[in-house]
Design a protein around this nucleic acid. Sequence first.
DNA 1: CTATGTGAACGTGTTCACAGCG
DNA 2: CGCTGTGAACACGTTCACATAG
Lengths: 248, 248
Amino acid sequence: MASQRGEGDLTTPLEPADRERARAIPEAAVARLAVYLRVLSGMADQGVTTVSSEELSTAAGVNSAKLRKDLSYIGSYGTRGVGYDVEVLVSHIERILGLTRKHSVAVVGIGNLGHALANYGGFPGRGFPVTALFDVDDDLVGVPVGGIPVNHIEDIQRVCAEREVSIGVIATPPPAAQGVCDRLVSAGVQCILNFAPVVLQVPDNVEVRKVDLAVEMQILSFHVARRADEAANDLVNGIGVDGMVIRP
Amino acid sequence: MASQRGEGDLTTPLEPADRERARAIPEAAVARLAVYLRVLSGMADQGVTTVSSEELSTAAGVNSAKLRKDLSYIGSYGTRGVGYDVEVLVSHIERILGLTRKHSVAVVGIGNLGHALANYGGFPGRGFPVTALFDVDDDLVGVPVGGIPVNHIEDIQRVCAEREVSIGVIATPPPAAQGVCDRLVSAGVQCILNFAPVVLQVPDNVEVRKVDLAVEMQILSFHVARRADEAANDLVNGIGVDGMVIRP
DNA sequence: CTATGTGAACGTGTTCACAGCG
DNA sequence: CGCTGTGAACACGTTCACATAG
């Protein structure tokens, strides 16, 4: 079933079978594949060559059925009765995730967060070199952050084209986000990671992912409240905070 | 259907009806409620008093059916034929999300990201004051960041108890994350926001949310690859990059 | 007559459990 | 005989469409 071909090749197009498969992979599975990849890379570094679905799933924090299902979306690369070859899995996941190609990243908005992102210097996981920084503040323009000089937002289009930026990261204050987004889009950037707490409007051909700290905190808050409430409820029903039945 | 009671009350326990409802709200809906809340707050600031499901849903980037369903999880606070009262909705969502209570936040790991987080000074959206910072580096201990002096990690338990920290934010390098997590848990923190690219092991009573930049980038990468591939595929099938059929 | 609220239909993602391969 | 790979069952979330309240 496997389509053999040189691994690590920079511009390998997917085979027709892989192509249909990629279309069908659920978004949730894609996110988990990235996690499996990280765990597998760690294992490879430690000299592990083979892993079972049980081991890998535990390390990745999911159950083994889900892991096997996820892996089945990208093909059948395991050996029954044995498990998976770590290196083989790594390269197949990398290929499916498009990591055989470098994705140049631009960070817009060099405030606290922008600084932090720029200084990661080649985003977590490698394969995502930060090649351009932008800000509106003239005092910042020209100053190198994480080794890269800041450009003025006006120059987004030119600089993004020159450096073949494929991913734009928005780390601006909320009011500026939509404007920056529009510029990135008109510069041909089709993938955006948005840290600004704003719902971005983009054309259909642009992919946006958002990281929203306020929302994350509020989800946690919801769970605190729910738990506190359940505890109160349980007490009323005669169950102690430790789960012990004190009034059966 | 509405359970009337003083709004903005700091320690109002939920009524039994609300309690069952809170249990039943899908996680995905909770995340969206937080977004609605932000949009509604903005509207309130601009003096808007009433909003229809259509308007609110557009502003929040979802469809109106989903919005109404989400709101129905928390009760029926709209007026048929009219819409929703902005203030009423805001206070009900705040109550359901547990935002009538302050959630003290501790940030662990004062590197680039930790600095950025500490300097947000009272996390995005308010109601989440950062009250403690921790690091292993002795040179950092005592130095104020965003107005709060850094404590040594050793003191997590004492300081978290004193300042009633309810949410811990992990912004350490990956190898330190699990250890920090364990300390936070033993300090009684039940909610953790994890920025380290590590799968944390925690007891059942602790809620973890993770923000994983590498995963986000790789999901975007996947979409770039899928798109590039579709384009290649379309070319083979005689469709131009602009969607025009060039070889029917 | 308008816009909410919701049961019912639908679709997607998860889990189960076992057939089948090595 | 163990572990993968997967169809089938299930659970969850989304969308539809309309009865219902104002």
